[in-house]
């Protein structure tokens, strides 16, 4: 059951106690982000280091391949970009040398 964000104080759960397990998926924390992780899909070796290290489990994986990030919940901490072990001469998105995952200013996106 989704949390009713318009609930008045009479309807809101007492003291904010939560009775549904796993409902943090409903809480959009991606808006906190100032830097966005962007990965170079061609150069990525799918080693899963970023998947292991991500504290918010936002690295999306399908059939053992990294397919992107859950930007609704990524807070932009940058741990994935630090831990990423694969180097590129020119990142597919940024054009910069460095890691497969690079952090990009959020303001540069539409």
């Amino acid at each position: 059951m989704a949390v009713n964000l318009e609930a008045g104080w009479r309807e809101a759960s007492i003291a904010g106690t939560i009775f549904e397990a796993g409902n943090s998926i409903e809480y959009i924390t991606g808006t906190w982000r100032t830097l966005r992780p962007v990965y170079d899909a061609e150069a990525c070796t799918h080693c899963m280091i970023c998947w292991v290290y991500c504290p918010d489990s936002i690295v999306l994986v399908e059939n053992s391949k990294v397919i992107g990030f859950d930007y609704d919940h990524c807070k932009g901490c940058g741990i994935c970009a630090v831990e990423c072990p694969v180097k590129v001469k020119a990142h597919a998105y940024t054009g910069q040398p460095g890691k497969v995952i690079q952090m990009v200013e959020e303001t540069s996106f539409e």
Partner: peptide, 20 residues
């Protein structure tokens, strides 16, 4: 019936919880 007590509360609900 699992429950979580002492949750994170932002400006969107904290005020309502004080009113309670």
């Amino acid at each position: 019936n699992p429950a979580t007590y002492g949750t994170w509360d932002m400006y969107d609900f904290y005020f309502e919880h004080k009113r309670q």
